[in-house]
Design a protein around this nucleic acid. Structure first.
Length: 728
DNA sequence: CTGGGGATGGGGCCC
DNA sequence: TGGGCCCCATCCCCA
């Protein structure tokens, strides 16, 4: 063996038992093979597994990992996406580990730090590497680390290993090392202009705290502004070729083979300190989440979160407001009958201390601010949670919903592991400062219940203006009979109630089963329990979050057989296939235009709606009072819901039927409005619908209102209900 | 340049 | 937990 590296390789790999090379074996074969594998890794070629370590992504080959680490071997068998416990191995440390796996070398600290694009002094300690190697069950790396530590007199017999290597001094001796080859979607400091975070003495959390992810840098694979945010010396590496950009060209960001659905949502059900033995599935949503300053935030930084600095103490128990409107503070209650937030978080994310620890990453967001666990409670100058931070507008229910992380405020002095999270059970509207009384519909906070009540009154007035005083008063009175189609279910003893007995106390929607109700109730929470570990975006449903993660990872499991285009969702593929089949099942009842996608028909219908009432009148002239027939020119314009309204008026005028059973009519209306999602069906349903409303004895205007609201109900979330328009 | 259609991505929400 | 569907936004192409 002429290559010292090869010697290490042979000692470190599973080929250690093959050191006796016979004359028939090429002496450099092992080394060349490993070099090729490493080269492929740097290019992302044939990489079939993604390893997520906190907020860094690594690509690698399953075979190589399995051949190097018993622990990784156990993981790659089942998953294409591994999520390593960030408490056990930080991104910087894993970079070194991965480099070792692929090269047999352990880079020296300083160079490794540079390679890892972390600040000098923040490089992972050899102890941390040792701990990670123990955790990952890489005996050769463990031995190598111990050897080096002994050489430097710093090895003191790690007992119970895997403690994060806190007992070791940082190993920062400069020297010959390896070129950083680890392909990783490199994380960098959040502040492009600010200095890197100060070095920390808390391995392995130090490197983690220092690699505060910048969402833009996650996409730093090109010369765009996002990449520009990465200072060159940071070496935000696009090496892996993983294009996480929003729009990845077909194939560019797709793994070599499609990843199955199950690859994405590992259950965060294992404690962070669990070693490999206890390790089940890596938590996807567990790592500390530094509030990630999106690029958009830097373009227009939102005002600081006024609530973050409110001390973060558990504070007084939030007012329960039992006398207030039911929609208020539901998110703060610890209702035994429901899945409390704290309980849910405990189930889904681990212990309360873990939750606090998760938020412990928050301070790092402050540019140049103190590292994890140091300094005052963080404010969020550039928090993605800040008002207006959501670049997509509807990404967040409201500013308060995102800023007011009722269950995840910062404990005073930062978040230390084990610090009790006092807000898990009750939450705290931290983003509202002293305005603890929050109106859920609009997200505004008020300092007193009186002011909140006054504000709610304003909502009532709005309701009155929209729907009439009686209805508004009914709405203001709250349950049991609220709004929407679900109100049908609210009628005591009605069919709807039997079908959908589980009612939301906040909005009166009702559901068939309690699980769906709980799921729905999350939409009323001011915070979202499922954050994306890559960008920090939060979601109300885990499935939405995992689906979102797919976009980050470029996972598109659904491929079109015709053109090879891939999609993240089955539904998209189904939609797409109509392009090839030429099927256009969606037809405009106004102009006869056909569309392959329903959404494009809806968009098209909006174009018709531009004509407004005049268009509706024209359409009605052509319709002759019957739905589904285009105007004389075939291009008549009919808008929704104005057109529905007008049609209903005509039909109601033409009908003079006696009143029918209220419940039966309500059921019919509910069924009909249920199908109004499709404008075509809506139109076809109008005639019988109006007929029956007239049978109820409604005035033409009232019948028209019913139908209009019915159509509106089907199209939007704020529809009224049948009972409200029932004969009085 | 503008408007409309085709097509896609992403999030919300219910089943 | 994932599927399905809805909505919105966006990009691209073309007349």
């Amino acid at each position: 063996m002429t290559f010292p590296e090869a010697d290490i390789l042979l000692k470190s790999g599973e080929c250690a038992g093959q050191t006796m090379l016979d004359t028939m074996e090429a002496p450099g074969h092992s080394r060349q093979l490993l070099l090729q594998l490493n080269n492929q890794r740097t290019k992302g070629f044939l990489c079939d597994v993604i390893i997520v370590v906190q907020n860094a992504l690594f690509r690698a080959h399953k075979n190589v990992l399995a051949a190097s680490s018993a622990y990784l071997k156990s993981l790659v068998v089942h998953d294409n996406l591994l999520n390593l416990d960030h408490d056990m191995v930080s991104p910087a440390v894993f970079r070194l580990v991965l480099d070792f796996i692929y090269t047999g070398r352990l880079a020296d600290g300083a160079e490794a730090a540079a390679a890892a694009a972390v600040a000098p002094g923040a490089e992972p300690s050899l102890g941390a590497v040792l701990a990670a190697a123990s955790y990952l069950q890489i005996p050769d790396l463990v031995a190598l680390c111990k050897k080096r530590l002994k050489r430097h007199g710093k090895y003191c017999h790690l007992r119970g290993g895997g403690s994060g290597g806190g007992g070791y001094a940082p190993y920062g001796r400069p020297g010959r090392g390896l070129r950083a080859a680890t392909p990783v979607i490199q994380t960098c400091y959040s502040s492009p202009a600010g200095p890197p975070p100060p070095p920390t003495s808390e391995p392995p959390s130090g490197p983690e705290a220092s690699v505060n992810t910048h969402c833009a840098e996650l996409y730093a694979s090109g010369p765009g502004p996002a990449a520009a945010l990465c200072a060159p010396e940071r070496r935000c590496s696009p090496l892996c070729g993983l294009d996480l950009s929003k729009k990845s060209p077909p194939g560019s960001a797709v793994p070599e083979r499609p990843l199955s659905e199950r690859d994405l949502p590992p259950r965060p059900d294992s404690p962070p300190s669990a070693g490999p033995a206890a390790y089940k599935e890596p938590p996807l949503a567990l790592p500390p989440l530094p509030p990630l300053p999106f690029q958009k935030l830097e373009e227009a930084a939102p005002p600081p979160d006024p609530f973050r600095g409110s001390g973060g103490s558990p504070g007084p128990e939030p007012p329960g407001r039992p006398d207030g409107p039911s929609l208020l503070y539901r998110w703060m209650k610890h209702e035994p009958g429901l899945s409390s937030y704290g309980d849910e978080l405990s189930r889904e994310r681990g212990s309360p201390g873990e939750r606090c620890e998760e938020r412990g990453g928050d301070p790092a967001v402050s540019p140049g601010g103190p590292p994890l666990g140091l300094g005052p409670p963080p404010r969020y100058p550039g928090s993605l949670d800040g008002p207006g931070a959501g670049g997509d507008g509807d990404d967040y229910k409201s500013s308060s919903e995102e800023t007011g992380s009722s269950e995840d405020p910062s404990p005073p002095g930062g978040h230390l592991e084990g610090y009790p999270c006092p807000h898990l059970a009750y939450g705290e509207p931290e983003s509202f400062g002293d305005n603890l009384y929050v109106c859920i519909p609009c997200g505004k906070g008020f300092p007193s219940s009186e002011q909140l009540n006054a504000h709610v009154e304003a909502h009532v007035e709005e309701e009155e203006a929209l729907y009439g005083r009686a209805e508004a008063a009914e709405v203001a009175a709250g349950p049991p009979f609220g709004s929407g189609a679900d109100k049908v279910a609210g009628a005591p003893g009605s069919l709807g109630e039997l079908l959908r007995p589980y009612r939301c106390a906040s909005c009166d929607k009702s559901y068939k089963d309690p699980a769906t109700l709980r799921q729905h109730e999350k939409t009323h929470w001011l915070t979202r329990p499922y954050p994306c570990t890559i960008c920090g975006k939060k979601f109300t449903q885990r499935g939405t979050m995992t689906r979102h993660m797919r976009s980050h990872l470029g996972l598109k499991p659904f491929a079109c057989d015709a053109c090879g285009m891939r999609f993240t969702r089955q539904y998209r593929l189904t939609e797409h296939m109509r392009i090839h089949s030429g099927e256009k099942p969606y037809e405009c009842q106004v102009c006869g235009g056909k569309f392959a996608q329903q959404r494009n028909l809806i968009s098209h219908m909006k174009m018709h709606a531009v004509g407004g009432a005049a268009g509706a009148a024209g359409a009605l002239a052509g319709l002759g009072g019957l739905p589904g027939v285009p105007g004389p020119d075939g291009k008549g314009k009919l808008d929704f819901p104005e057109g529905v309204f007008a049609v209903a008026r005509l039909t109601a005028e033409q009908l003079s039927l006696k009143q029918q059973d209220k419940a039966a009519a309500a059921e019919l209306l509910a069924q009909t409005t249920h199908f109004l999602h499709d404008p075509k069906v809506a139109l076809e349903s109008l005639y019988p619908l109006a007929k029956f409303t007239a049978e109820l004895g409604l005035s033409p205007d009232k019948a028209a209102e019913v139908l209009s609201q019915g159509a509106h109900l089907a199209a939007g979330p704020d529809g009224r209900t049948i009972d409200r328009f029932s004969p009085t």
